[in-house]
Design a protein around this nucleic acid. Structure first.
Lengths: 190, 190
DNA sequence: AAAAACGTTAAGAATTTATTTAATAAATTT
DNA sequence: AAATTTATTAAATAAATTCTTAACGTTTTT
């Protein structure tokens, strides 16, 4: 009876491990280390976890769990929740991948747009000075102009990326690309 | 006259460096190292470059350039081009950020969907066996069912991601979110 | 108030990743 | 064919990251 139960448990773990492996392997896309990915994937199958439970489950140190969990919180893949009774901190994984997608990419793309637009702005200012300075040699002026135009054209992309972020935040993107409903799943299940 | 030219050059480099810095800093999003990012950003301002020019420009070794360039080629941010006359390999940077966006994210998201869908499929098979086995204990069966359902729901996301990739590949996404034209840029230029 | 539990920080060890130098292979020129 | 040029591979070194143990500060319990 006990070995029976043991067997069930093993099979369940084996099933979970397949998904945990895949998730943590693709987590590099989100700038996470393998262990942080594994931690998230583990939490994905649990209601909630404390640091000690994580440490035990992954056989790693508590500070390790602490830092991984913080990184996961930064991209909102994990939230701290309040549980009266337990004085340990309790964490839950975000199980809605749509939300994870939104938070992560909006965060990243915003950063990309902001940083690069700022740099472009500054660079263009300097290039303009070169172009407008009558002492500038002909060759230099031409090169400056070419770089200026290249940067100017690139703004199109950043502007577009900004609009993409907005359409994700306000969920308009789901009008263009609806979330599939459960029925659409089956014919994928061959 | 010569110091004049020196000054122009310095200002040009300073302008470029602002953008190069910003690009290489945001390149971590694309899983590139700082140096690979810097290399790409440097090439962005050049028509074409040989390994030796890269090495000189970044003051790094040639094997280093070789590996960075290969990584950049993998995500199609750099292409090798044929130039008769020169027997060195000649590379050019992809300057169209839209294309870089498409290639990179489609590649990554495809990988994510493929890996995870496959894992889900296998895991669900095992979970089904547990659920259908009449010897399985009640608690185990319930847990297996919960995990099964969780995985089933997650497919919605992967299916959506797949559609997103498709709409990027066939450019339908630009009907929903048009690329801004040059005119729209100016009011951003405050 | 003392002791215990908890999470985090700090410091050091271990592993991994990136970079360089040296060696090799392939191609081109003389 | 020998010598030179070019890119890549291999081995060694350097640098950066990740992880652990130990120490700290805070909160809670007794």
């Amino acid at each position: 009876m006990d070995s029976r139960h043991e067997l069930e448990h093993e099979k369940m773990e084996s099933a979970k491990d397949k998904v945990i492996g895949a998730i943590s392997e693709t987590m590099d896309l989100y700038g996470l280390t393998r262990s942080a990915g594994k931690l998230y994937a583990t939490m994905y199958f649990e209601d909630e976890m404390t640091l000690d439970e994580m440490r035990q489950e992954l056989s790693m140190s508590k500070p390790s769990m602490s830092t991984s969990v913080r990184k996961l919180q930064e991209i909102e893949m994990v939230k701290k929740v309040f549980r009266r009774g337990s004085r340990k901190d309790v964490y839950v994984a975000e199980k809605n991948f749509f939300r994870s997608f939104m938070v992560f990419y909006c965060q990243m793309w915003d950063r990309e747009v902001k940083m690069n637009m700022e740099a472009i702005h500054q660079a263009q200012k300097e290039l303009s000075e070169l172009i407008e300075d009558t002492n500038t040699s002909k060759e230099t002026r031409q090169e400056a102009q070419e770089h200026y135009d290249l940067l100017e054209r690139s703004k199109t992309y950043y502007l577009w990326l900004e609009k993409l972020v907005a359409s994700i935040r306000n969920e308009e993107i789901f009008e263009f690309l609806p979330k599939p409903d459960q029925n659409e799943l089956n014919h994928k299940n061959s």
